[in-house]
Write a protein that binds this DNA or RNA. Structure first.
Lengths: 335, 335
DNA sequence: CTGAAAGCGCTTACAG
DNA sequence: CTGAAAGCGCTTACAG
C-alpha cells in the first residue's frame, strides 16, 4: 500500500482536492463541518502531505541549512542545539553540513543545498564576501556567524571576543597582577585576532605603563605548553598569563607546574571558552564563557526574520556578549 | 531574475527538455556533442535543477534524517561528524533533529520528516518497536543506534558495552585488584544495563570467589561522589572501582581524595566513555573508549545499503567494539 | 539519438 | 463555501 495522496483523501471525504488542501492548511475557506470530515478521512488514511510537492508549488522548503567547519566537540554540539531548538520552535527543519575545512568543500556543500533550503547559516573562518557572491544566489537569505565579512548584503552575528578578552585582562589587572602576558591564537583566525585586540586595548587603557607581552600559540594544548616555557624564560616573568583559549591555558599550566610554580600564588592564569575541562584542572581555570547555545538560537531567529521579511535589509553586524568566569587560577581571591 | 529552469536551458541549447534532463543526469541517451552544448547552456544560465521537482518525480530525496536525543557534547559532535562524513561521501544530505527528550517530541519530529528523507537514523533510549510501528511507514528504511529493540523489521547497531565493561573488569582483576566494585548507571538506561551485565559476567568468570559489589548511580558526577563515599563506608573496602561512566568516576575520585586515599595505590579506579576530562584529572583516568565517529559512519553506511537494496532484509543487530584505555588510575603499571 | 506528452502531488487564482 | 483546471520543474516511457 503506497502512501495516501491528496486525491485519496478527497475521494474518501467526497470533496475536491482543493477543499482537502484548504482544510489541511488551516481550514480557512471551508466550513468547519467539511473540514472535520476531511480531517477524519485524512486520519483514517494516515495521510501526510508530500513535502516535495508542496515545496515545488509553494517555493518554500521550510528548511534552513547550516554550514559548519570542522568544529571541536563542545562548541559544535552547543551551537547545533541552539539552532535546532529555535528551528523546531518555528517549525523549520535543519539541514546540516559540517566538518568542512576547505573552501572547495564548502562551495560544493553550499551549492548542493541550493533549492533545498530557504536560508543559510554559515560559520566559517574562510568564507568571505567573494565566496558568497560566487556560490549563492543573492536572493537567498544568509546569516554569517563569527565572521569578518563586512558587507551590507549579509547579516553577521559575532561573539564579542574583544569585550570578553578586555574584561578578563582588566580583571587580572585589578586583582593586582601588574604584568599580564598574552598567548595568542593562530594567525588569520578571526576569534584569535579579536581576543588579541581586546588584550591590547585593555592593557593600553588600564595598565599603560606595563609592557604588551605576547607570545605565539595556535590554540593547541601543546602550543600553550611551549608558550608557558617561553614566558618563564623571559627576564621579567609576567604576574599573570591570559591564554587566547582554554586548551592553551591548560598546556601552559602544565609548564608552570613542571617549573615548580604555584598557580595562582606565583603566577596567575586565565583562558577563554570555558570548556568542560576548565573545571577539572587544578587549580580550576578562570576563563571567559561564550553562550554558544544563544549564539545558535539568535542566528536562527535572525535568519527566520529574514525569511519572513525578505525586503528588510539585513541588520548590521550584531554582537553577543561574553561573561567572565572567576575560578581559582586567576588569584582573584588572594587580593 | 528568477532561477533558470530546465525550459530555459532547453531553449538556450535549442533542444527539448527531455534531452536537457538526460544530459544533466549522466548523459546517457544523448550524443557527446549535444550533451556538451547543453552543459554549456546550463553553465551560462547558472542552472541548478530544482531539488523539489526532482524529489517529486523520482521519489527520492537523497536525504537521510537523524533523530537524536539531548546528547552530551562530545558524543553528539562525534556522532554527527561520522554520519556527516559518510553521508557526504555518498552524496546524501543530512537532516538533523536533536535534543529530544520526550517520546511525543520524537514522534512529532519523525512525522515531520516524513517525505523529506529516504531513511532514518534513530538514537534514543526510549524509542521502541511499538513507537516505530505507530509513527513510521514500514517502507521507510531505519537504522537504530544503541537500541534494545530486537525486531527483524529494524536494523540495529550497538556499541559493545558488555564486552568493553567485561574487558575493563578483567584488566583490573589481572592488575591484582581482587575485589572490584561497580558504580551502576541509571535504571532503564540501555548502555548502563549492558555495562552492568559485563561487570557481572567478568566477575563471575574471572573472580568467582569475589563478591559482586554494586552501588547505585545515575551517570552524574554527583552520584559518583556519593557512590564513592558509600564504597568507602563498606566493611571491606574494594580494591578497585569501576564506574559505569567517566563522570561518575570523576566524582568518585573526588570522594577518594577527600578521604585521603591515594589512587591507584590505595584503591584503583576506572570509568567508561573516555571523555576529554579523563585525560586531565589527576591521576589520569583509565577508561573504555567507544569509537563514536565510527558508530556514526557505520550507521550511515548500513542505512545507505538499505536504500540501495530495499528488498534485502535488515541485518540482524550489529555491534561495534570498544577498547580499553589504560592510564594512571587503574594501577596497572604497579603490578 | 531526440522530442512530445503524461504525470509526480500539491496549491491557488478563477468561476460559480 | 466549493470545484475544475492550470501549473510548479522535473523524469521517463513511448514513438519516431
Amino acid at each position: 500500500m503506497a502512501a495516501a495522496t491528496i486525491k485519496d483523501v478527497a475521494r474518501e471525504a467526497k470533496v475536491s482536492v482543493a477543499s482537502v488542501s484548504r482544510a489541511m492548511n488551516g481550514g480557512s475557506g471551508v466550513t468547519a463541518e467539511t473540514s472535520l470530515r476531511i480531517q477524519q478521512a485524512a486520519d483514517r488514511l494516515h495521510y501526510i502531505p508530500h513535502a516535495a510537492a508542496r515545496m515545488l508549488i509553494t517555493r518554500r522548503t521550510n528548511t534552513i541549512g547550516a554550514l559548519l567547519p570542522d568544529l571541536y566537540g563542545e562548541f559544535f554540539s552547543e551551537l547545533i542545539r541552539g539552532i535546532d531548538l529555535a528551528a523546531r520552535a518555528r517549525g523549520l527543519h535543519l539541514l546540516v553540513s559540517s566538518s568542512h575545512d576547505g573552501l572547495d568543500e564548502a562551495a560544493a556543500a553550499v551549492r548542493s543545498m541550493q533549492g533545498r533550503v530557504d536560508g543559510l547559516l554559515i560559520l566559517s573562518g574562510r568564507v568571505d564576501a567573494a565566496f558568497l557572491r560566487a556560490n549563492l544566489p543573492k536572493t537567498l537569505p544568509v546569516v554569517l556567524l563569527n565572521s569578518a565579512v563586512k558587507s551590507a548584503a549579509y547579516s553577521v552575528l559575532n561573539v564579542d571576543n574583544h569585550a570578553g578578552a578586555s574584561a578578563m585582562v582588566r580583571h587580572l589587572l585589578k586583582a593586582g597582577h601588574a604584568n599580564v602576558a598574552f598567548i595568542a591564537g593562530p594567525e588569520g583566525n578571526f576569534d584569535a585576532a579579536q581576543r588579541d585586540k581586546g588584550y591590547r586595548a585593555a592593557m593600553t587603557r588600564y595598565a599603560p605603563d606595563a609592557p604588551i607581552n605576547i607570545v605565539p600559540g595556535d590554540f593547541s594544548e601543546e602550543s600553550g605548553y611551549r608558550a608557558g616555557r617561553e614566558l618563564l624564560a623571559q627576564k621579567h616573568r609576567p604576574d599573570a598569563v591570559f591564554a587566547a583559549n582554554d586548551m592553551m591555558a591548560v598546556g601552559c599550566l602544565t609548564a608552570f607546574k613542571e617549573a615548580g610554580l604555584r598557580v595562582p600564588q606565583d603566577i596567575a592564569l586565565a583562558g577563554f571558552d570555558d570548556i568542560p575541562i576548565a573545571r577539572y584542572v587544578s587549580p580550576t581555570l578562570s576563563t571567559v564563557r561564550v553562550r554558544i547555545v544563544d549564539l545558535g538560537r539568535h542566528a536562527l531567529e535572525h535568519l527566520a526574520g529574514l525569511l519572513e521579511n525578505p525586503d528588510q535589509s539585513p541588520a548590521t553586524a550584531q554582537t553577543l556578549g561574553c561573561e567572565i568566569v572567576v575560578r581559582e587560577s586567576c588569584g582573584a581571591s588572594t587580593t
